[in-house]
Each structure stands twice: as structure tokens, then as C-alpha cells.
Amino acid sequence: MTTQYLILSGLIFAIGALGVLIRRNAIVVFMCVELMLNACNLAFVTFARQNGNLEGQIIAFFVMVVAAAEVVVGLAIIVTIFRTRRSASVDDANLLKY
């Protein structure tokens, strides 16, 4: 039973990772990262079930906390840069290169 959940979590994670790599809008990229974190949560909870201990669920809590903090910080950064450039495209952020 748990295998399906794991596959699902793997899929979500892959979708998230793929999204980070191919999407160009910073917010979408960022949401994809959050998706990846949630895939992790799913995996943790599944494993907690599989292993029969609660640790995984506790970890999921912490991950949520971290994800929340990340959201706060990340959106702040994205909004700042958006206000400056009127664009949230990662491609437009190209000043830094050699």
C-alpha cells in the first residue's frame, strides 16, 4: 500500500524538480520547490507508516515549518526584485555572469 504513496511522492518530487529547471517565472520556480518539499513530506509520512514509528510525522511538521519560513523569505525576495524590475522571470535576472 505504501509503495503507491512513495511512487506518488517521487513523481511529485520529479515534477517539482523539473519545474524548477524548466520554468522561467521565479514564483513558479519557487512553487515548484515547495512542491518538492511537500513530496518529501509525503515520503516521510509514508515511511513513518511503513516503519511504524512517529518520527517521520514529526519531521513532516518540521518540514512544514521550514517550508513556511522559506515561503516568507522567498516571497519577500521575489517581491523586492519584482518591484525593481517589473518582471519575475528568472531569465531577466542576468546581470551576474562573467
Binding site: 521565479a26 518539499l37 522567498g74 525576495i77 523586492t80 551576474l96
Partner: peptide, 18 residues
């Protein structure tokens, strides 16, 4: 530059922590 650095650091950092 600074904001861009911040954004890049953040996105990649979050990606890697995932």
C-alpha cells in the same frame, strides 16, 4: 546585482535543500 544574487541564492538554495 545584489537582489539578483539574493534571488539566485534563494532559488538554488531552496532547490538543494529540497
Amino acid at each position: 546585482l545584489s537582489q539578483e544574487a539574493s534571488l539566485k541564492y534563494f532559488l538554488l538554495g531552496a532547490f538543494s535543500s529540497a
